Computed example of a mutant assay.
Amino acid sequence: MFWKRHDTKSGAQALIALSGLGDAQWETGTPRRLFEAGFRQNPISYRCIRMIAETAASVPVRLVSEHDATDGKTLIRLLTNPSAGETGHSLLEAIYGDLQVSGNAFLELVRRGDDALVGLQRIPVGAIDVLKGRAGYAIRTANGRRIIRPDARGWSALFHLRTLDPGSERLSMSPLQAAGRAVEIHNAGASWAKALMDNAARPSGALIYGRDGNHLTPDQFDRLKSQLEDAHSGARNAGRPLLLEGGLDWKPMGLTPTDMDFIAARRESAREIALAFGVPPMLLGIPGDNTYANYREANLAFWRLTVLPLVQRTVRGLEDWLGGAVRGEVRLKADLDAVPALGPEREALWSRLSAADFLSEDEKREIAGFAPREVRHAD
């Protein structure tokens, strides 16, 4: 039987132990850790969040409905100066940023004792507790908690805007959460590169001793280890010669194909982060991405596929929510005519409408997004 054979060859033999890969350790399981890793420590996701929030907030929101003069002035003031020291632009930017980081955003209408609307303020997502069922929300403050419940109509003074999440009825997931693993891989690549630079900007090596069966004594081992750490570790010691004695030999270790794949994986994770946020990698300067023919084409895709859907959904949500706080219907409009990036498309539309003789003037205005002209009756 083959397992009963005995090998009589003499000589030293080496025993090599191979171990498989362990399970990956993901550290962005909590919202706090995800925020630290994705917003504060990762340049790709940080830039994506800022680009989306700042670009979307640059689209002005106009009031276009007719209602009571007092309510109209109040809504215009809330949209332009929602609270002391804050503009409507900065408030929208914060809301869009909350949606990218946490998937949720909260706004609260502030009223005086006589029930008049005096302000509009953002509530940080971390200060919100969702009550069981549909009983409302609790806002944590320095003095305890404030409970906000919907009225008999179902309207609430706290507006909850959320991203798409079919698996949740209340709080939603965010693009940053979808990109969480790619963020960790990208951050791990940065840590690897920093560690490589800290170790003289080159891979580690091995000190070989005891070719004839000799071994270092514990004191010799501790002394050698201390000398290596003090005199030959770190970027400031790069290139310093290593003095060897007593049969020691240094064997440097070069970058393996696995190390090179690790660098490529970091670039791929950067593209995955951009994909989760809907930002074309070309706009972020990520190398190796030629999805679009030029920068202008990529920028237009960013506006059409990411920014405008976010703005329109937010405007429709604000329109419905503010309509429950005032008398009459509230109609808001995202002023796309103020967006320079959409200028070529707008000019092409106007040219086509001008050449469409089969359309009336009011029909052309409606297609272009304008209200019909006032009809004048002949005397």
Rank of each mutant, 00 (worst) to 15 (best):
L99F: 02
S351F: 07
Q13L: 14
V339E: 02
A142G: 11
H377E: 15
R162L: 11
A200W: 03
L242H: 09
F277V: 11
V279I: 09
A53T: 06
D335E: 15
L349H: 02
L305D: 15
S351E: 13
P218F: 09
I139M: 13
A142V: 14
S172Y: 07
G11Q: 09
D98W: 04
D7K: 00
V101H: 02
L91Q: 08
L284W: 10
V183C: 05
A84F: 05
S191W: 13
L120F: 06
F370L: 15
D71L: 00
W303G: 08
P124L: 01
G167V: 01
A356L: 09
V307A: 07
G324Y: 08
D23Q: 13
L275I: 02
W303R: 10
I44P: 00
C48L: 00
A182Q: 06
I139D: 04
D114S: 14
R304C: 12
A17T: 14
G85Y: 08
T258C: 02
A341E: 14
T141K: 06
W303P: 06
Q121C: 07
R181S: 08
R376P: 06
V315C: 01
H232Q: 07
L336T: 12
D362H: 00
D337R: 14
F262L: 14
A69G: 03
D114P: 05
N237Y: 09
D68R: 13
K4P: 08
